[in-house]
Simulated assay, not measured.
Amino acid sequence: MQFFAAAIVGLTLIFCLGAIFGKDDHDVCDAALEKLTSIGEQSFPVGLQEEYRKVIDAHASGEYKTCVNLANKTLEHLKRG
């Protein structure tokens, strides 16, 4: 019985930590997407328009870590020109 209670507590803790860290990814993704949106898709070179759409798709599907990575890559490509 103690094992069952410990397992429930452990699973609850894992779920709570996942929700907390997942929220951070969501916030970072939102901020990066806002930066890209403020620049405007029309000012992106053709290759970066596709990257921008991938960021939007990742955000819409809830893949926030992917969204952050893609957004950072796109912003880096914009800086390089």
Score class of each variant (00 low, 15 high):
residue 1 M to N: 05
residue 1 M to C: 04
residue 3 F to H: 11
residue 3 F to W: 09
residue 4 F to C: 11
residue 4 F to Q: 13
residue 6 A to D: 03
residue 7 A to C: 14
residue 8 I to C: 10
residue 9 V to Q: 15
residue 9 V to L: 15
residue 9 V to E: 15
residue 10 G to P: 02
residue 10 G to A: 06
residue 10 G to M: 02
residue 12 T to L: 09
residue 12 T to W: 04
residue 12 T to F: 07
residue 13 L to R: 15
residue 13 L to A: 15
residue 13 L to D: 14
residue 14 I to P: 00
residue 14 I to T: 07
residue 15 F to R: 13
residue 16 C to N: 12
residue 16 C to S: 15
residue 16 C to E: 14
residue 16 C to D: 13
residue 16 C to Y: 14
residue 17 L to Y: 01
residue 17 L to A: 07
residue 19 A to E: 12
residue 19 A to K: 13
residue 19 A to S: 14
residue 19 A to V: 13
residue 20 I to L: 12
residue 21 F to W: 12
residue 22 G to E: 02
residue 23 K to C: 03
residue 23 K to P: 00
residue 25 D to V: 01
residue 26 H to A: 13
residue 27 D to K: 09
residue 27 D to Y: 06
residue 28 V to C: 08
residue 28 V to R: 14
residue 28 V to Y: 02
residue 29 C to Q: 03
residue 30 D to F: 05
residue 30 D to Y: 06
residue 30 D to M: 05
residue 32 A to Y: 14
residue 33 L to D: 06
residue 34 E to Q: 14
residue 35 K to H: 08
residue 35 K to L: 12
residue 36 L to I: 00
residue 36 L to E: 03
residue 36 L to N: 02
residue 38 S to V: 02
residue 39 I to T: 02
residue 40 G to T: 01
residue 40 G to W: 05
residue 41 E to Q: 12
residue 41 E to R: 13
residue 42 Q to F: 06
residue 43 S to P: 05
residue 43 S to C: 04
residue 44 F to V: 08
residue 44 F to P: 11
residue 45 P to K: 14
residue 46 V to N: 14
residue 47 G to M: 06
residue 48 L to G: 14
residue 48 L to D: 15
residue 49 Q to W: 01
residue 50 E to L: 10
residue 50 E to G: 09
residue 51 E to K: 12
residue 52 Y to F: 12
residue 52 Y to H: 09
residue 52 Y to E: 02
residue 53 R to E: 13
residue 56 I to T: 07
residue 57 D to S: 10
residue 58 A to F: 03
residue 58 A to T: 02
residue 58 A to P: 06
residue 58 A to R: 01
residue 59 H to L: 03
residue 61 S to I: 11
residue 62 G to I: 01
residue 63 E to R: 11
residue 63 E to L: 08
residue 64 Y to E: 05
residue 65 K to A: 08
residue 66 T to W: 02
residue 66 T to S: 07
residue 68 V to G: 03
residue 68 V to R: 08
residue 68 V to S: 09
residue 68 V to E: 08
residue 69 N to Q: 09
residue 69 N to P: 01
residue 69 N to H: 06
residue 69 N to A: 07
residue 70 L to D: 05
residue 71 A to D: 01
residue 71 A to V: 00
residue 72 N to L: 04
residue 72 N to R: 01
residue 73 K to M: 06
residue 74 T to K: 00
residue 77 H to P: 03
residue 79 K to L: 10
residue 79 K to H: 07
residue 79 K to I: 08
residue 79 K to G: 08
residue 81 G to R: 13
residue 81 G to S: 11
